[in-house]
Design a binder for these strands. Structure first.
Length: 628
DNA sequence: ACGGATCCCACA
DNA sequence: TTGTGGGAT
């Protein structure tokens, strides 16, 4: 027998072993100075990615003009990816399937998978993960989107330069020789010239680094092709901005190098709209306010002037990018920071009843829960915030669309809970949206509002200390045994977390503890939507689940290392939800010595004193998560 | 009947 | 912190 304590934990600052960069993490400054030492940054962009994914599934489509569409009942569906063969005909993203057929009658339209009545992009997410796992081999890798990554190849390039510089190489791979070197005789980028550039012994250090970067990137791209059958394009430069620009210059399946010497000319003629972040309103206002059409045009304005007009951050950022300066670091992040799913209900499809909204929220919740479960199992991460975004109109005033507020709350795992919470959040938001006007729909329909889009998302995703040896002391999910996978999943739905094995003897209480006097919310189905007030006032209810456990501990594999705490015996087990961050450090001393060190590593100091004992079980070491 | 579904970020 | 808004793909 054992007791199980469910724990939520968070990791402070992803402390990897040898990292020493102590740049205080600013609040994402738009403007950051370039590091003094030249970096080698690559941007890798998959070519019409969704199309390639589908073509891999159906090889007979390879080489044919084709496009991926989602839905198809209305005007043939919307295109979200277009093969290069089809682009020759003028087919573009954002066209309708019907229109694509007009300009390219032979186009193959491939439908996005549908699940639960909505587009299901998991196929592409998974394919993207394949690519990331390959591209992250040679240096710090940032997943920038489902089909793009940034790489910091500085170290790898420096190593190559000192150990095996290009200039001593006899032969370079074909793929590298196909590189485009900006500033080189652009018309005929003959391979001889490229090779000369790559292998120049009299080049400056920066250019040599880029040459190494180009070689490494070519290898990576070939790895990707071999292992996934996907082609991609790449840009190699000294910062993210330039690398991103370059990757788009020669597509598909090519790579482009941006030597420093080419930057000025490049930017001088580059339309501002082409620059990342300037494709929208800011770019437009540059044009209308300052008469700037190319990035180079920005050079004439002083930093102060730009700051006056666009704020300190943005001003400095503009001043910098005009000079090709961007100190933005490549974040080491291989996984998305949030999971979201949504669906639109255009025009006549707008949702007019709470019941229909509930239905779709339920579908979305199912998908979200599924994705959270995979993230948990595959990556040992837990999400902490649930957010709902909607669009809706009021029948009277048009453009009331914008005012539908988004809402968020602590995320509870499990389809049913997410469904419950999203409905509650929607209800709360709807009241706010409607203001004083009447909320409930008389009868079934209502004449006052229509929901045109629903989306929910899970964010604040934090890694558990997976991979660290502390995990040896924990079980993911239901440790009690070999219960069927289903049962285990149900358990996870009920409350996700990791269980600490063993415990401190019998527990002394089985009461639900409460604070703030708000009543614990019952699971009653009768009263469907907890009031908006309840959402607003954030009642402080803690959850505590008591479970009887019997039988021997289920052993996954290595029980031996787990030693001390597993051997304790308890009469009864309990399930709590706690946040590790709230551990009072003083209690660590009471934990088994073997794990003290590590526990210290992944908690953060207790903020508010919380010394109240909560009983005689291990539970009193932790603070329950407060629920709203 | 807004290209849709997702992501990310800065800022208040 | 949650919520808003902009931007990209």
């Amino acid at each position: 027998m054992y007791s199980r304590v469910l724990l939520f934990w968070r990791e402070e600052g992803s402390g990897r072993g040898g990292e020493k960069k102590e740049k205080v993490k600013e609040k994402m400054p738009i403007a950051r100075p370039e590091p003094q030492d030249a970096r080698v940054i690559a941007h890798i962009d998959m070519d019409c990615f969704y199309v390639q994914v589908e073509q891999r599934k159906r090889p007979e489509l390879r080489g044919l003009p084709s496009a991926v569409v989602q839905y198809n009942s209305w005007k043939g569906g919307g295109l979200i990816a277009v093969s290069y063969e089809a682009r020759k005909f003028g087919v573009k993203r954002s066209m309708r399937g019907d229109d694509a057929k007009k300009v390219c009658p032979n186009i193959q339209l491939i439908q996005v998978p549908v699940a639960r009545g909505k587009a299901d992009l998991n196929l592409y997410r998974n394919a993207g993960s394949e690519v990331v796992s390959i591209l992250s081999r040679k240096g710090r890798c940032e997943r920038a989107s489902i089909d793009e990554v940034y790489l910091d190849l500085t170290d790898a390039a420096e190593s190559m330069l000192s150990e095996n510089p290009p200039e001593i190489l006899e032969v370079l791979d074909e793929e590298v020789l196909k590189s485009h070197i900006l500033g080189l005789t652009e018309d005929q980028s003959d391979k001889k010239t490229v090779k000369e550039w790559l292998c120049r012994s009299d080049a400056d250090h920066q250019d040599k680094l880029l040459a190494c970067g180009a070689i490494i990137v070519a290898e990576l791209r070939m790895d990707v092709l071999k292992e996934t059958i996907f082609t991609c394009s790449a840009g190699i430069a000294h910062n993210k901005m330039l690398a991103k620009l370059a990757s788009a210059m020669h597509k598909p399946a090519q790579q482009t190098v941006v030597p420093s010497s080419s930057v000025q000319d490049l930017l001088a003629s580059l339309p501002v709209k082409k620059m990342k972040q300037l494709g929208g309103k800011l770019g437009s206002s540059l044009q209308s306010d300052l008469g700037v059409t190319t990035v180079g045009d920005l050079l004439q304005f002083s930093e102060g002037k730009l700051q006056d007009r666009y704020g300190v951050n943005t001003g400095t950022w503009l001043w910098n990018i005009a000079r090709g300066i961007s100190g933005d670091e490549v974040e080491g992040r291989l996984l998305p920071k949030s999971h979201g799913c949504g669906k639109t209900f255009p025009g006549p499809k707008a949702l007019k009843t709470i019941a229909s909204v509930e239905h779709w929220l339920n579908e979305l919740s199912e998908e979200l829960n599924e994705r959270l479960q995979s993230d948990l199992h595959q990556n040992k991460r837990v999400a902490h915030t649930l957010t709902i975004h909607c669009r809706a109109y009021k029948c009277n005033d048009l453009e009331s669309d914008k005012k539908f507020p988004s809402k968020s709350c602590p995320l509870r795992y499990g389809t049913a809970k997410i469904q419950e919470d999203t409905l509650r959040l929607f209800d709360s938001a709807l009241r706010e949206f409607l203001g004083s006007s009447r909320v409930e729909s008389q009868g079934n329909r209502n004449k006052t509002w229509g929901v045109t889009s629903l989306s929910i998302s899970a964010s604040k995703i934090l890694a558990t200390p997976a991979g660290t040896s502390i995990l040896k002391f924990f079980h993911v999910g239901n440790p009690s045994c070999s219960s069927s996978k289903q049962e285990s999943d149900e358990f996870l739905q009920d409350s996700v977390s990791l269980s600490i094995l063993g415990s401190e003897g019998c527990l002394g209480r089985n009461q639900v503890e409460q604070q703030g006097g708000a009543p614990h919310q019952e699971e009653d189905t009768m009263n469907p939507a907890p009031s908006a007030e309840q959402v607003a006032q954030k009642s402080e209810t803690w959850e505590c689940k008591i479970e009887e456990q019997g039988g021997p501990l289920h052993q996954e594999e290595d029980t031996m290392n787990r030693a001390p705490i597993t051997e304790q015996v308890v009469q009864r087990s309990e399930t709590w939800e706690y946040k590790i961050e709230d551990i009072d450090p003083s209690v660590i001393d009471e934990l088994p010595p073997e794990i003290q060190q590590e526990v210290r590593g992944w908690i953060r100091p207790h903020k508010r004193a919380n010394t109240a004992k909560r009983g005689s079980s291990i539970a009193h070491y932790f603070s329950p998560i407060k629920r709203s």
